[in-house]
Design a protein around this nucleic acid. Structure first.
Lengths: 192, 192
DNA sequence: CGTTTAAACGGGGCATCGCTCCACTTAATG
DNA sequence: CATTAAGTGGAGCGATGCCCCGTTTAAACG
């Protein structure tokens, strides 16, 4: 890659990071190009689609998340490991408003630039889930796909302004369902 | 309303129903107008925004859902009443691909044409929830907003093609969390 | 250091979108 | 039948993602 190309590539990425943080994942690509001081053509050659741009922005975060899963796999408490990784995964998948939908679409679309990132994410989660299941801490009737779907749903929830105030609470409720019998769980109404 | 206006109004609605079923809630309004044989201006006067069109399409379904909640409130088993209403609510909010996002946005936006429909929906759910809570069948730490958020998340989930195969299963898991201790619930791994 | 050449550039262009505006048509009334 | 207000439809606006291609420029070579 030529030096001027590299410079533009990096600069576009930096500008995109800013603009997507403000306006969400569907910010205008033209705006990004303009703000970066390059032409539309330049942006679209470096990042042929919006997803390619998102992938470049999220790649390092996903890698960190996978690494983090590796660390947590060595933690004794498999349930808490899964729980805190879930929390982190949701934070990451929520880096930019509106990224969740393209991510979900990408997991079955092998042509998408986001595909491998999503597969990695599911894989990392599945590992932690299986460990918690082996120790009898997590529901046995779930797999990596279910976990991925739950993360997606919770991240989407946290992305809808009217639902934000409920996001943490619902996370707790769903965590109860995935990891039954944890402390602080379902308050005592077993008397029914 | 003049007779020709009424005819156009009804015809647009019929065409919209078809086209939105195929292409989802973000189908092109121009296409709808063209297919209905009217001009853009005509469509936009009858339905100033996409949400107004959605509202007209969903109104009767929402009303039916509210009425259904009234019936179910007389059912003895408050937990099963809530459960089957939830199922129906998700089906309705999933009538057209992509309706959920505008609906969620509308619940805090009083200027939206969809606002009152959403408020009605939340209200109906809250009633059934409170009844189940009073009988000690549902988690006490939830309210109508939480339920609305859960319905939204589950409907969104069922709207993402890659997640569809998991939708029913996750519904069951979350239902377990909302109505703890039901039969068929969390399979026996309490030994942990 | 000058020449060459392929990589990189940028912006004009295309089709599409939601929505507005307004000159025209037409249903309904007295 | 004349009047008139309600209704119509399509041209037009600004914006979008993405393509195309004439022009510029970095960098390798003699």
């Amino acid at each position: 890659m030529r030096s001027d190309a590299r410079k533009n590539y990096d600069h576009i990425l930096a500008v995109a990071r800013d603009l997507l943080s403000e306006d969400g994942a569907d910010a205008s690509l033209r705006d990004i190009a303009r703000k970066a001081g390059v032409g539309d053509g330049t942006l679209h050659r470096h990042f042929p689609t919006r997803e390619a741009l998102l992938e470049a922005l999220l790649r390092t975060r996903f890698d960190a998340l996978t690494a983090r899963a590796g660390e947590l796999a060595r933690c004794e408490k498999a349930d808490e490991a899964l729980l805190s990784w879930l929390r982190e995964a949701i934070v990451v998948t929520h880096s930019y408003k509106g990224v969740i939908a393209p991510m979900v679409a990408a997991i079955t679309d092998e042509t998408s630039a986001l595909h491998s990132s999503c597969v990695d994410l599911r894989q990392a989660g599945a590992g932690l889930l299986e460990r918690a299941q082996a120790k009898g801490l997590a529901r046995p009737d779930m797999d990596g796909n279910d976990l991925f779907a739950l993360i997606s749903a919770l991240a989407w929830l946290a992305d809808q302004p009217p639902l934000v105030p409920r996001a943490d609470h619902l996370f707790a409720i769903i965590a109860d369902a995935v990891l039954p019998g944890r402390t602080g769980g379902t308050p005592g109404n077993e008397a029914a």
